[in-house]
């Protein structure tokens, strides 16, 4: 089985978000970048398949060399080969089109992307990729088993879960639940050494065009100070929620 895991390289969850150049660019100063958490859940499941039923696991990123350490980390925790499509990740549509052009030339049985990236939160890439490749797609995927070319996947829905079945190849949008937090791997010395020997290929861009452009950014307005209500005056809280906030 050949698995492709799409990797986004995002600011660490504790990052302070700031912008430069008159609020037109994300300020990367002092920002630590990580594998997008949802992608990491997906990659961990891919490595599980590799160990349990045998699979080749490839990781791919669309973007600049800034993400190379992130891809090396993917190799260190068990991926077999890394690709980077050398194109600016201008929007979700451009990224999906670059990935689709690549995937069309390779026979993947399973393509995994994260449910959404935690920076632009588009939740666009996996769904668009599935449509471009005409493959079934399971987003918010919290369970996946593969047996004899058939995938059984579980999708989290508002207020429950849905079980779906399809022939491979399919695309899934991974999230927590597909594997547990405790299943995530930390690269060890051996993994890091091996990663240096693993193939890492830079692929030229197909020149996919973006359909949106982020022209500027803005931070939320600062919040007014909290109104503290004494613990022995709950009536006051109810009064405020009713009359001032009008939410009850």
């Amino acid at each position: 089985m050949n698995i492709l895991v799409c990797i986004s390289h995002v600011p660490d969850t504790t990052s302070k978000i700031n912008f430069t150049e008159s609020d037109t660019k994300f300020d990367t100063t002092g920002v630590q970048f990580i594998i997008n958490p949802n992608d990491e859940f997906g990659l961990t499941r891919a490595i599980w398949f590799k160990e349990k039923i045998g699979a080749q696991v490839h990781v791919i990123h669309v973007g600049t060399s800034a993400a190379d350490p992130t891809l090396r980390k993917c190799l260190a925790i068990g991926a077999d080969k890394a690709y980077r499509i050398d194109a600016p990740a201008t929007d979700g549509s451009a990224v999906a089109n670059e990935l689709a052009a690549f995937a069309k030339d390779h026979a993947y049985d399973l393509i995994i992307a994260g449910r959404e990236s935690i920076d632009y939160n588009g939740a666009m890439v996996p769904g668009m990729l599935s449509a471009l490749l005409d493959m079934p797609f399971v987003p918010n995927c919290v369970g996946l088993t593969i047996d004899n070319g058939m995938a059984t996947a579980e999708r989290e829905i508002d207020g429950g879960r849905e079980q779906l079945k399809a022939h491979l190849p399919i695309v899934i949008g991974a999230q927590k639940g597909l594997v547990e937090e405790s299943d995530l791997r930390i690269p060890n010395m051996r993994g890091i050494m091996q990663a240096r020997q693993k193939p890492f290929e830079v692929v030229p861009s197909q020149g996919a065009e973006a359909k949106t452009k982020d022209v500027s950014f803005e931070k939320p307005a600062p919040k007014a100070a909290v109104k503290l209500i004494p613990a022995d005056d709950i009536d006051q809280l109810i009064e405020l929620l009713h009359k001032e906030a009008k939410v009850i």
Binding site: P11, I17, F19, I118, D119, Y120, N121, E209, A210, K211, T212, K213, D214, V215, S216, F217, E218, K219, P220
Partner: peptide
């Protein structure tokens, strides 16, 4: 051009539609 939430609500982006 639309204002949309980004960076998990830590910021907003103004996105222009090119299509």
């Amino acid at each position: 051009s639309y204002k949309r939430a980004a960076f998990t609500n830590k910021a907003f982006a103004y996105s222009e539609v090119l299509a």
